[in-house]
């Protein structure tokens, strides 16, 4: 217990309980019932899946802004391949995921081959991807939106809503949490991520191939964002070029609220999942409480700042506590 309280995640959990309690009172029966749960879980699932690799990148000391355009680029690719060109849906999905892998690879190569900050590089690839997706869609289809009606099997795996409320994306999110928990905290690979974020030079000296690891992380982020794009097109049956830009900041918010250090070197998958939960409880809670929806931005922005400011004090506390414990 004392061990847990020393982590920034403790603050996130506390924040979540307070937020949930507040909106349970304000939002009433609807919010604490199945309808409320499904609405925040659906929001959490989409942004939460992307927040996982974005969080790993942040722990490793990098940002990825391009997720915001990979999501629609992937949706459009699936729709173009399977609707316009009439190829089977699995081929379309493979195409969508390949787009994500490719953009991730380009990000990774640019970040490791230059000294330009990853924020700047991924802003560039975001706009590049967005422009390319828009241009190609208009060129091929003559409009900025594409429709796709998926077959029942694909729909049940990726786009169904259980009981008309709980989308299957929620289970993909939970699965993603388990997978990323394994990658970061259990597998030896995760140790390299922490080391690179803590001190890239020392990590390299210790024999970690930091360039390869960076490219891997960006490709992971690309393919996972593309997967969310796939889920979106299957669930919503249409893809828009402009969709997805909200993921850029929302994913960073979730990760930071979840206690990941903005400068890298520390964080946890549980924290990222808690941060995502808090984010979606607040956005949906405000809606259910009948409050002015502008409040959402104010509350989220405030929480983000508090999280960023307290993350470091939690860590200082953790360090000084452990050195004072036995003297």
């Amino acid at each position: 217990m004392a061990q847990f309280l020393r982590h920034p995640e403790a603050g996130t959990l506390f924040g979540l309980l307070v937020a949930y309690a507040a909106f349970a009172v304000l939002g009433g029966q609807n919010f604490v019932g199945a309808q409320g749960w499904s609405s925040w879980l659906n929001v959490a699932a989409e942004v939460g899946i992307i927040a996982l690799p974005v969080g790993l990148l942040m722990i490793a000391g990098f940002l990825d802004i391009s997720v915001g355009s990979v999501v629609p680029a992937s949706s459009l690719t699936v729709a173009l391949i399977s609707n316009h060109y009439q190829l089977p849906i699995p081929v379309g999905i493979a195409g969508g995921l390949a787009v994500g892998l490719l953009i991730g690879f380009i990000n990774g190569m640019l970040v490791t081959r230059t000294t330009v900050p990853s924020l700047i590089i991924t802003i560039g690839t975001m706009f590049g991807t967005m422009g390319l997706a828009l241009g190609l869609t208009v060129l091929i289809k003559g409009s900025t939106g594409v429709f796709l009606v998926a077959d029942p099997l694909t729909k049940s795996i990726l786009g169904e809503a259980l009981g008309g409320m709980f989308r299957v994306g929620i289970f993909w999110w939970i699965g993603g949490i388990a997978l990323f928990y394994y990658l970061l905290h259990v597998s030896p690979w995760g140790n390299g991520v922490f080391a690179m974020g803590g001190d890239a030079e020392s990590a390299r000296n210790a024999g970690i191939s930091t360039k390869r690891l960076t490219v891997q992380l960006y490709m992971l982020s690309g393919v996972v964002s593309a997967f969310v794009g796939v889920i979106q097109i299957i669930a919503n049956s249409n893809a828009q070029v402009a969709a997805g830009s909200s993921f850029i900041f929302n994913s960073i918010m979730c990760v930071a609220i979840g206690g990941v250090s903005l400068t890298g070197g520390a964080g946890s998958v549980i924290g990222i999942a808690l941060g995502t939960t808090i984010f979606s409880v607040v956005t949906q809670g405000v809606f259910y409480s009948g409050l002015d929806t502008n409040l959402v931005s104010i509350v989220i922005g405030g929480m983000f700042l508090i999280a960023v400011l307290t993350n470091d004090s939690f860590r200082n506390f953790a360090q000084s506590f452990s050195s004072m414990a036995k003297k």
Binding site: N191, A195, G198, D199, A203, G207, G265
Partner: peptide
Amino acid sequence: TVHQFGGTFPLMSIGRSFFVGAE
């Protein structure tokens, strides 16, 4: 080679940082 600041990672546990690159 051990550098001035030890080449260790302040926010990692002792066990984890000891085995970076050779887990």
